[in-house]
Simulated scan of single mutants.
Amino acid sequence: MIELAIVEDEDSYASQLTEYINKYQSESGNKFKITRFKDGDEITNGYKGQFDIILMDIEMKLMDGMTAAEEIRKLDQDVIIMFITNMTNYAIRGYQVDALDYVLKPVSYFAFSQKLGRAISKINKRSTNVMTIEMPSGVKKIYIDNLLYIESSGHNIIFHTFNETFSIRAKLMDYEQQLLGYHFFRSNKGYLVNLRHVDGVENGCCIINGESLLISRARKNDFMAALTNYMAEVI
C-alpha cells in the first residue's frame, strides 16, 4: 500500500488527481491510500512521516507548497515530493527540497501517469526495511540494513549507523521486539547487534565497523549460535 497525500486547495484539481490515481491503480495493480489536504499548513501540522509520495500544489493561501516542502524536509528526508503547478520557474527552489518532479497544470493523464510511475520505481528501489523513530524534533526514518547496533544508556538508547549516532528516550526491549526477524541479537544487556555487520569475534567481543562490543558470558553460546545460523543463511 502506497501512502499518498494530495495537498491542493482547489477541489476540482484534487478530484482530478484522485481520479487519475484511481485509474493508475486499476491499470498498474499498485494500491494507494489517498489523504487530501487543502493547504500546506494542514499537512505540516503534526507531520509524522507517514507518506511515501506527496503531490504538492505550490500556490496556496495560508502556506504555499514550497514552504510546506521545506518544513517537511526538516522531518522527513525520504518522502517523494512532486509539485503541482502552472509555473515552471520554481525548478531551482525545487532542487533545494529534493523534489522529484513537476506536474504542470492543466494536468494530462498520460504525463501524470508517467511521473507517478517514476516515483513508484524510486520507492521500489529502496530497501523495504525502514524503521520510523519518534524524535523530540519530529520523526526520523532509518534503513534497518544500515543500523549497526543499538546501545542502552541509562533511560536512553543510542542508535549507531554508518553515517550518524543519535539517541532517544526509550527502552532497548521495545526495539528488540520491532527488530525480530531482521537478524538482531543481544550480545549483552546493553547492546542489540545487527548480525549482518559483525566482522568477527575476538577476545570475548564482536567486531562491528571497527568497534569491539562485549559479549556477556551468559549470552555467548546463544549469540554464537545466532551468528552461525545467520552466516549459514547468507552464504
Rank of each mutant, 00 (worst) to 15 (best):
residue 164 E to Q: 12
residue 233 E to P: 10
residue 185 F to L: 05
residue 171 K to Q: 12
residue 85 T to S: 14
residue 108 S to H: 12
residue 53 I to S: 00
residue 198 V to N: 01
residue 201 V to H: 06
residue 71 E to Q: 11
residue 49 G to I: 06
residue 65 G to C: 04
residue 187 S to D: 01
residue 150 I to L: 14
residue 108 S to M: 10
residue 88 T to K: 13
residue 112 F to E: 01
residue 138 G to F: 06
residue 229 N to H: 12
residue 195 L to Y: 00
residue 67 T to I: 10
residue 46 G to L: 06
residue 221 N to D: 13
residue 62 L to H: 14
residue 44 T to A: 07
residue 57 D to H: 06
residue 30 N to L: 03
residue 16 Q to D: 02
residue 124 N to G: 14
residue 74 K to C: 09
residue 153 S to C: 10
residue 29 G to N: 02
residue 131 M to C: 10
residue 152 S to L: 14
residue 88 T to G: 06
residue 82 M to K: 04
residue 192 L to Q: 00
residue 150 I to C: 05
residue 86 N to S: 15
residue 179 L to F: 14
residue 126 R to H: 11
residue 52 D to A: 07
residue 79 V to I: 08
residue 98 D to F: 05
residue 16 Q to I: 04
residue 115 K to H: 14
residue 232 A to Y: 13
residue 157 I to H: 04
residue 21 I to H: 01
residue 40 G to F: 02
residue 77 Q to Y: 03
residue 47 Y to I: 05
residue 87 M to N: 08
residue 220 K to V: 04
residue 20 Y to C: 08
residue 220 K to P: 00
residue 6 I to Y: 03
residue 183 H to T: 10
residue 62 L to M: 13
residue 186 R to S: 04
residue 180 L to G: 08
residue 35 T to L: 14
residue 3 E to N: 13
residue 45 N to W: 03
residue 62 L to S: 09
residue 175 Y to P: 11
residue 60 M to H: 07
residue 2 I to D: 03
residue 10 E to T: 06
residue 137 S to P: 01
residue 37 F to G: 05
residue 103 V to R: 00
residue 142 I to H: 05
residue 201 V to F: 04
residue 26 S to F: 08
residue 153 S to E: 07
residue 210 G to F: 04
residue 187 S to K: 00
residue 3 E to P: 00
residue 230 Y to I: 03
residue 21 I to T: 01
residue 66 M to T: 02
residue 165 T to K: 11
residue 144 I to H: 06
residue 172 L to P: 02
residue 114 Q to K: 14
residue 66 M to P: 00
residue 95 Y to P: 11
residue 88 T to W: 04
residue 128 T to H: 08
residue 90 Y to M: 04
residue 127 S to A: 10
residue 172 L to D: 09
residue 61 K to H: 07
residue 155 H to T: 12
residue 54 I to R: 09
residue 34 I to E: 06
residue 150 I to E: 02
residue 30 N to Q: 13
residue 42 E to L: 05
residue 222 D to Y: 03
residue 91 A to L: 13
residue 57 D to S: 09
residue 158 I to E: 10
residue 163 N to R: 10
residue 169 R to Y: 09
residue 28 S to D: 01
residue 156 N to Q: 15
residue 102 Y to Q: 08
residue 120 I to G: 01
residue 155 H to M: 12
residue 101 D to Y: 06
residue 150 I to S: 01
residue 118 R to D: 13
residue 229 N to T: 12
residue 220 K to W: 02
residue 52 D to F: 09
residue 77 Q to H: 09
residue 30 N to C: 08
residue 223 F to W: 02
residue 186 R to M: 10
residue 164 E to M: 11
residue 229 N to L: 09
